[in-house]
Amino acid sequence: MTELILVVEDEVRIARLLQIELECEGYRVSIAGSGHQGLEMYQEQQPDLLLLDVMLPGFSGIELLRRIRAGDPDTPVLLLTAKSSVEDKVSGLDLGANDYITKPFQIEELLARVRAALRLASGRRREEAVNLLMAEDLELNETTREVKRAGRSIELTPREFDLLVYLLKNKRQVLNREQIMAAVWGYDYYGDTNIVDVYIRYVRKKITLDHQPELIHTVRGVGYVLKDAP
């Protein structure tokens, strides 16, 4: 699907120019004329990129950026700033803006920066997808070490994380304690294999939220298997 760009700009002439040029490049475009409207449209539409004017009615573009970055570190945001507003540029970059464009701007430069920001975001998503392990609504990202179930974050210790990685990479395979011990604790670990049972309980409890179906199952006399709920 074509990328959606949200333009938050209160100057109607500039907003219309950006819409025409971006749509000519093949993007879908939405326009908001204030900080409040920009926040509402961002939440409703989940755009792929924001072009955000700093000087806005309601609340500023810097405040809108702050609110967006409080829960979304990834969506590219390009600031439109006045030529002399060094403070706005610094504040915006410190809050997580990906780039800034100084008014008055050349449309070719703006389009090039939009393309670059979208390429970078797409590359990050592909990299994360390669390192994403899943079972049902459980997601584990090896790159960011984030674990979520049904969108809710789960905190794991380093050992619990390594155990869950191993189980997910061997999904639907029954693994005995010795296999798990060797993979997660290492061949030179000489402790009791009951430690596997203890950590399985820890992980199972943490990833089973709100009475969701269990994903880690005990195979009596053999070991454990992680598989999707029937």
Results as ranks from 00 to 15, higher is better:
G191R: 07
T81L: 07
Y42W: 05
L18F: 09
E11S: 13
F59C: 02
S84V: 13
M134D: 09
G123L: 15
I207N: 02
S85F: 11
E127P: 06
V219R: 12
P158W: 05
K171A: 11
R220G: 04
Q106F: 08
L95H: 07
S122E: 15
A15Q: 08
E160Q: 15
G186Q: 00
R119N: 13
T218I: 10
D228K: 11
D197Q: 08
S34G: 08
N98E: 14
P213G: 07
K169N: 15
I207R: 01
A15M: 11
R220D: 04
T2P: 13
V225H: 06
Y190W: 08
I200H: 03
Y100N: 04
G71K: 08
L118V: 11
E44N: 12
N98W: 09
L49E: 01
N176T: 09
S85Y: 04
L52K: 02
T193P: 13
R125Y: 11
N131R: 13
S153A: 13
T208C: 10
T218V: 11
E21S: 14
M41T: 12
V184H: 06
W185Q: 01
Y224H: 01
A15C: 10
G35R: 02
R115N: 07
R172C: 07
Y202N: 12
E23T: 07
R115C: 06
L51R: 04
R204L: 12
R13F: 13
P213I: 10
T102V: 15
L22N: 00
L22Y: 02
T102I: 14
E21W: 04
T157Y: 11
E109D: 12
L95A: 14
W185D: 01
G33C: 10
V130P: 04
I31A: 07
G221W: 00
D197Y: 06
T157H: 10
Q179G: 02
Q43T: 09
R66A: 13
E3C: 10
L226F: 02
E142Q: 14
G35S: 05
R145Q: 15
I107S: 05
L132A: 11
A117M: 06
R204K: 15
L18I: 10
C24M: 14
E11Q: 14
D72Q: 00
N131V: 09
S34N: 02
L168W: 01
T218F: 03
